[in-house]
Design a protein around this nucleic acid. Structure first.
Lengths: 229, 229
DNA sequence: GCCTATTCATAATT
DNA sequence: AATTATGAATAGGC
C-alpha cells in the first residue's frame, strides 16, 4: 500500500493493528454506505474486533437484513435455523390449540358423566348419559362380581389344598383320616339391590355370571375427532 | 471520484449502476477480507442487490457470526428475536407435555367411568367408581325429574291461561260460562323403576322432589394437578 | 488526530 | 472486458 506494500497477514504490532483496524473499518463503512446509496442495494456488515468489540453497519435495519438473508439462505440450502424454529413454534401452537380443545371436550364430557354441568343438557342428552352410566355400572358390577368370584375360587382351591395336605399328614402320622366334610355347596352370590342408595357401605355383586366385560361401549358423544387423537 | 466526482445518490442509469455495483462490491469484499486478516477481526457482510440477488462475505462462518452478533445484541438491548423464539419453543414444549399428561389422565378416568379399561382397578377403586356413577345417576335423574316437572308446570300454566281466555270469550259472546272442570289433581309422578334395563325407552322420573342439583361431586381421583389446569 | 507519500479504487471510455 | 485518469484510502511518521 504505502511506503512499502503491507504484507497480507495479521499485523503483529498491537498498536498499529488497532490503528489500522479503526481506519480501515471507517473506510469500509463508508464504502458500504456508498454502495448502498449509489446502487440502491441493501448492505449490512458485522465486525468483531480482535478483542470482541462489535461494530455493525446496516443500510436499513440489521434484523430485517439478517431475516431476509436467512429466508434467502433457506430457499437455497434449507439449512436454516431461525425459520425452522419459527416453523416449530407454529406447529406447537397448532397442537397446543388442538389439545386445549380436546381437554375442554373431555372435561365437559367427564363432568356430565359425574353429574355436573347438566344445565345445558337436553332431555335426550340426559337420557343418553343416564343409559351410559347404567351400562357403566353394569360393567363395573360385573367386574366386581368377577373379582369376588375369583377370590372365592382362590380360597376354595386353597381350602382343597389344605384339606389334602391335612389328610396326607394324618396318614403319615398313622392317624385315621378325618371325615372330610363336604365342601359347602356353592352359595349363590346374592343378587344386587336395585339402585342402592349411594351411602350404602357394603357393596353387592351382580349375580349374573361373568358376562364378558368387553361390552361395546365406544364413546360417541364428546370424543374429539382431532388429528392428535 | 474519477473524472468529475460522483454525486452521492442512486445511479439512475441501470447499466452503469449494475457495473458500479459489481466493481464496488468486489472492492468491498477485498477490503473486508483485508481487514479480517490484517487486524485479526471477524467480518461478515450481506448485500442484496437492487434486484434482490444475495451476495455475502464472511471471514469465518456467516451463521456463527450472526449468532455471535445476536448474542451480543441481546446482552446489550435484550431485543433479541431468535433466543426469544427458542424460549417460546421451550415454554410451548413444556405446556404440550403437560397437556399430553392431562389428556391421558382424563381419558383413563373417563374410560373408567364408561366401564372400560377396568383390568387394572382394585376392588377399592371399582367401589369408588361405582359410588361415583351412582351419585351421577342420582343427580341426572333428579335433573330429569326437574325438567319433567318444569314441563308439567308449563303445561298447567298454559292450561289455566287457555281456560281463562275461554271463559272471557264465552262471556263476551254472552254465553253462560262453562262449568270449569276442576284441574285434575296433581298426580304424583310415578316413582322410577330401580336400575331399569339400558334398553328401556321411556324414562322414569325420580319422585323425590327437586332436591338441589348442586350436590357435592368434586373429582378427587384422576383430576390432574397441573399448572395449566 | 493530522500529514504525506504511495498505492488503490473506480468512472468513464474504448 | 481492458484501459486510463484521477480521487480515495491508507501506512507510517508526528
Amino acid at each position: 500500500m504505502v511506503r512499502g506494500k503491507v504484507e497480507m497477514k495479521r499485523i503483529e504490532n498491537s498498536t498499529s493493528r488497532q490503528v489500522t483496524f479503526s481506519k480501515r473499518r471507517n473506510c469500509l463503512t463508508k464504502k458500504a454506505y456508498e454502495l448502498s446509496v449509489l446502487c440502491d442495494a441493501e448492505v449490512a456488515f458485522i465486525i468483531f474486533s480482535h478483542k470482541g468489540t462489535l461494530f455493525e453497519f446496516a443500510s436499513s435495519n440489521m434484523q430485517k437484513i439478517i431475516k431476509r438473508y436467512r429466508e434467502h439462505a433457506r430457499e437455497t440450502t434449507m439449512v436454516n435455523n431461525s425459520t425452522e424454529l419459527e416453523h416449530n413454534v407454529e406447529n406447537l401452537k397448532y397442537e397446543t390449540a388442538n389439545m386445549v380443545k380436546k381437554i375442554e371436550i373431555l372435561e365437559v364430557s367427564k363432568r356430565k358423566l359425574m353429574g355436573q354441568g347438566l344445565g345445558s343438557c337436553s332431555m335426550d342428552e340426559l337420557q343418553d348419559i343416564d343409559s351410559r352410566l347404567e351400562r357403566s355400572l353394569k360393567i363395573i358390577r360385573a367386574r366386581k362380581t368377577q373379582l369376588f368370584k375369583d377370590e372365592i375360587e382362590r380360597l376354595k382351591a386353597k381350602e382343597r389344598l389344605l384339606l389334602q395336605q391335612n389328610a396326607s399328614l394324618r396318614e403319615k402320622c398313622g392317624l385315621r383320616p378325618m371325615l372330610l366334610q363336604p365342601a359347602p355347596a356353592p352359595a349363590p352370590v346374592p343378587a344386587p339391590p336395585q339402585t342402592p342408595p349411594a351411602q350404602v357401605k357394603e357393596r353387592e355383586n351382580c349375580s349374573r355370571s361373568t358376562e364378558s366385560v368387553e361390552v361395546e361401549t365406544e364413546l360417541v358423544i364428546g370424543l374429539p375427532q382431532m388429528r392428535c387423537s
